[in-house]
Design a binder for these strands. Structure first.
Length: 550
RNA sequence: GCGCCAGUAGCUCAGUUGGAUAGAGCAACGGAUUUCUAAUCCGUGGGUCAGGGGUUCAAAUCCCUUCUGGCGUACCA
């Protein structure tokens, strides 16, 4: 926000001085306070083409800046940096903008309404959601919220793999449990079948509806009935878990439906038309190696069935047909081997592969008291998303999943997430919000409000601590844009934690409400109201509640 | 073997896409409550940014290479 202003000012000065320049220079916030509020390397990058030393060039630019009103100072430093300090008045002016925007501060049209498809979670419909899905849910949903906040038009989609091998195994697993219920001895439960308790519960539930009726229909009908029942129930179960986590989807895309609507055939025929398929060893292959994949891939197996790859191509075909500008797939790390062939298929279909972006979320390790919680599907001790929410709460879970950048492994400390103290960053942020509310309440009791506030009083906000907080808040809009562009919502967690920290320190050092100094009280109230709004907005964007009382 | 991701303080992680002297929190130690919420604050110590080379005014950041860890490399999904 401020950076763009400074940038504009620099450009207009370069024009008026008749300098040759390119606009590749940057405006930065130096990490040493002595270097001012902002700095630019413009003189260093453009010295050569003006045949001047960077310092000289910088000096000329600085002269023009000294006449400008929003700047307290402009100085040449080191090898040719220009360091700026903005005037207090300027910061006060910006603060009034934050207050005026309220919880809309940071909202922007930056994304220009570009249509974005965010596909995430897309867990197999064969059991309850686990913690990996929880990470994907928190990540995808937060990115969704932020992208929409900065002007994109984003959609959330969940792809249900409700066809193929695994759902057949699911049906068979149900059947075994169903038989068991009716007193049959099923012997050892097959290794590849689904072992979880939920399978028994589903069989039980089905039995309540159908009783022994299913023994009297054909095996095909029975399995189909069981499959549909299980898919329905599990889908509902997953939806409920996501709902509890504050995550909804605009669309649930079913693989079965894609198959019924003939999209698989459509995709295959396009590939054939493009002469990108061939037959060999009784199978039909895709020339993916022509598009950068390391080898060709089978589309139709020699037994006549499509590989899992085909519905995936078909699904992505629909993504492109629906006209999205940006298509984001959020995947687990075990999928990166298959992305080259998917991208190959998109190219073969004649679409712009650059519109497809893959975000890989790395694995999660759960820790309890310093010990890693071992999970294995075989042993059936997978921690589900519901258990996690029950254990640490929605807010903490979401925060911890968002807190780390997507392509890094995540160590989740269960004990810390549960802890209600300053060690726990979630509470630290929420507490700052609650504290401010409490101060506002106190102020009201003392008849101090912002109703009759005169912004000329803002000149009383002259403490370095106060100006630093305003500076930090002014970064907020740019950070949201960076998040949307880099697809890295963890930056918001870092930002809000810092802001909360600044507030807690401020609180300890200065008294906000003091009836003896009405004007000063109002002024500080004004400042912390801005802080509160931004914390609230940040927490909302992360799907975390912003309590008024704790 | 090949490919992808990661390696920053004892631990968990940031680092504004190449900027000036690399930052937080936790853990350790010492302090603060007649005060708007102590779920808070103040202070102290802690680094060969995995190693080496290169690119340039400038590298934790970009390129090459070695090492370590995770994952992938099916006519499975």
């Amino acid at each position: 926000m401020v950076k763009t202003k400074i940038r504009k000012d620099i450009l207009s000065i370069l024009e008026s001085l008749n300098f040759k320049y390119n606009d590749k220079f940057t405006v930065e916030i130096p990490n040493v306070i002595e270097h001012g509020d902002f700095s630019t390397n413009v003189a260093m990058l453009n010295a050569k083409q003006n045949r001047e030393k960077p310092q000289i060039l910088a000096e000329r630019i600085v002269e023009s800046f000294r006449k400008k009103k929003d700047y307290k100072s402009a100085e040449v430093a080191g090898p040719g940096f220009i360091n700026f300090k903005m005037s207090n008045n300027f910061y006060h002016k910006m603060l009034t903008r934050i207050i005026k925007s309220g919880e809309d501060f940071g909202r922007s049209p930056h994304g220009q309404g570009k249509k974005v498809l965010l596909e995430f979670v897309s867990a197999n419909p064969t059991g309850p959601l686990n913690v990996v899905s929880a990470r994907a849910a928190a990540y995808g949903d937060t990115l969704f919220r932020i992208m929409n906040f900065v002007g994109y038009h984003a959609f959330r989609e969940f792809y249900i793999n409700d066809a193929g091998n695994q759902v057949e195994i699911l049906a068979e697993s149900i059947e075994l449990r169903y038989r068991e219920l009716h007193g049959e001895r099923i012997g050892e439960f097959p290794l590849e079948a689904y072992h979880g308790e939920y399978v028994k519960e589903l069989a039980n539930k089905l039995n309540l509806v159908e009783g022994p009726k299913l023994f009297h229909v054909s095996e095909k009908d029975r399995l189909e009935r069981m499959m549909n029942f299980a898919l329905d129930e599990i889908n509902k179960m997953q939806m409920d878990s996501l709902e509890r986590f504050g995550v909804q989807f605009e669309n649930w895309m079913s693989e079965k439906k894609l198959r019924q609507e003939g999209i698989l055939e459509e995709a295959l025929s396009y590939l054939a038309e493009a002469k990108c398929t061939y037959e060999s060893d009784d199978a039909i292959w895709f020339y993916s190696s022509r598009f950068g994949d390391e080898k060709d891939r089978v589309l139709i197996k020699s037994d006549g069935n499509p590989t899992y790859f085909v519905p995936d191509i078909a699904y992505h075909l629909t993504k492109f047909q629906r006209g999205f500008d940006i298509i984001i797939d959020v995947l687990g790390p075990d999928h990166h081997g298959y992305v080259p062939r998917l991208k190959a298929a998109i190219q073969a279909l004649g679409y712009d592969v650059n519109k497809l972006e893959i975000v890989y979320l790395q694995h999660i390790n759960l820790f309890e008291s310093g010990q890693q919680v071992k999970m294995s599907k075989r042993a059936g001790n997978i921690i589900t998303m519901d258990e996690l929410i029950d254990y640490v709460g929605k807010d903490a879970a979401r925060y911890f999943f968002i807190d780390r950048k997507p392509n890094a492994h995540l160590n989740f400390d269960l004990q810390l997430a549960k802890k209600q103290s300053s060690d726990n960053p979630v509470y630290y942020c929420q507490y700052a919000h609650a504290r401010i509310n409490s101060i506002i309440k106190k102020a009201k009791q003392e008849k101090i409000t912002l109703k009759d506030f005169d912004i000329r009083s803002l000149k009383k906000l002259d403490k370095e601590d106060e100006l630093r907080i305003i500076k930090h808040m002014l970064n907020f809009p740019a950070i949201l844009i960076t998040i949307a562009e880099t697809r890295e919502p963890h930056r918001l967690a870092t930002f809000v934690l810092e802001l909360a920290g600044m507030f807690h320190k401020y609180y300890a050092k200065y008294q906000v409400v003091n009836p003896a100094h009405r004007e000063l009280s109002q002024t500080r109230l004004y400042l912390i109201t801005a802080i509160m709004n931004i914390i609230a907005t940040s927490l909302n964007l992360m799907g975390i509640s912003a309590p008024k009382k704790m």
